[in-house]
Write a protein that binds this DNA or RNA. Structure first.
Lengths: 221, 221
DNA sequence: TTGACTTTTCAACGGTTGTTGAATTTACTC
DNA sequence: GAGTAAATTCAACAACCGTTGAAAAGTCAA
């Protein structure tokens, strides 16, 4: 009973979040009006302000909602691959896989919400206005734990090299999952933005090779 | 005389372009008003509409202005490295270097205009709204020539692998040159977004190793 | 200086923006 | 059913938006 009531209450609120997510992803923060959100959510204009305080509050709520889910999934994947690893800890590939796989597990096909969310992340991540603060607040704490794991897998790596390598990974990752359609045009249909499995299977060895080349001093001259 | 007059005419027009470039880079297309541009350029509001037709026309002009310069520099660098290469053509590293070096040559330090431009490119590239069409129109024709060169350096590569590798490169590149400040926060000051030389020196071997790992079948099992 | 032209300014248009206070409806407890 | 608080609607605010037509200023050739 209280369940049914809660469902109803969340229905409107989450409809607003879903609508805002889709619109912010496509048009950016300033390109979306509260009226567009309200109309898409089939809701009165004033309701979004009531629930989230302001347009900025709505934007933050959209960003935070799935960040928590994704962080939990990544944390679990990292701990899992650390538990099943040998005495030397997980390999570079296994750590990168634990970082990427949770995104694929939720977002690689039907789920419209996650697709919009990654589209939004792609924009926020490469925005000077918000990229420096929002991404830091939401994702960096866990990212540091992934980098620590990588430092164990690549013992005598220069920390600066390590951070730059992660930065390259971050750029490739967010652009790919944003699914902008660029690769479709460039490749004349040979590759598809929506082929997340194909992208994922190539991204892991690509960045792993990059990490190894820069951060693995043991096998080099 | 006609020179001096032309200087004056271009002064206002280019002041508008510079102002728009800086503002679009930071706040995006919708986040900038013609009044903001006019004020920053110390110019009447109506003048921007007069010179560029519309806000969209101004945006396109900003994007196109330096795209032409960059494309010419890249084209020259590619042809130069092909001319000085051996009979087998240039190496992967040399081709990637020809792609990255022109950006560094202009934008790695003082030049405020180029810094704003790369900041803008970072946003446009990862935008679903414009990334698919604008970047294609302005940059893809030359990108295809770079990919052709890479296909000669990596003869038996799967074209799909090649396009995905370039896509990863594109993501890493645009994010890095956008200088969002993310890596400063993440690394607690160990790395700096403004250290373009450091980023460049690491990016070339990073992506070259990725290309080799995916596209070089000759040396693998 | 006259005349033709481009550039710049001024003022204003209709339309959209985010937010809010008050009124209304809904949900649930006692 | 009365009472309470949350949820939703309505109407309106002042501020800002991009664009434009007409007037003014500037430029240069003849």
């Amino acid at each position: 009973m209280a369940e049914q009531e809660k469902k109803r209450r969340q229905t409107r609120k989450e409809r607003i979040l879903d609508a805002a997510e889709a619109l912010f992803a496509r048009h950016g923060f300033e390109g979306v009006s509260m009226r567009m959100v309200a109309e898409r959510a089939s809701v009165d204009l004033a309701l979004a302000s009531y629930h989230f305080g302001s347009k900025q509050g709505l934007f933050d709520a959209v960003l935070l909602r799935r960040a928590e889910v994704l962080n939990k999934a990544r944390k679990a994947a990292l701990e899992e691959c650390q538990r099943t690893a040998g005495p030397n800890g997980p390999t570079v590939e296994a750590i990168i896989d634990a970082f990427l796989n949770p995104m694929l597990a939720h977002g690689y096909e039907d789920d419209e919400g996650w697709r919009h969310y990654f589209e939004l992340i792609g924009q926020v991540n490469s925005s000077t206005e918000w990229g420096g603060v929002l991404m830091t607040r939401y994702f960096d704490p866990l990212v540091r734990r992934f980098i620590e794991a990588l430092e164990k897998a690549l013992p005598d790596a220069d920390p600066a090299d390590m951070y730059w390598c992660y930065h390259f990974l971050s750029g490739a990752l967010t652009l790919t999952f944003a699914r902008t359609g660029r690769i479709d045009h460039l490749s004349n249909g040979v590759c598809h933005s929506d082929d997340m499995v194909g992208a994922y299977k190539r991204m892991v060895p690509f960045v792993a090779a990059g990490f190894r080349n820069l951060c693995d001093k043991s096998g080099k001259s």
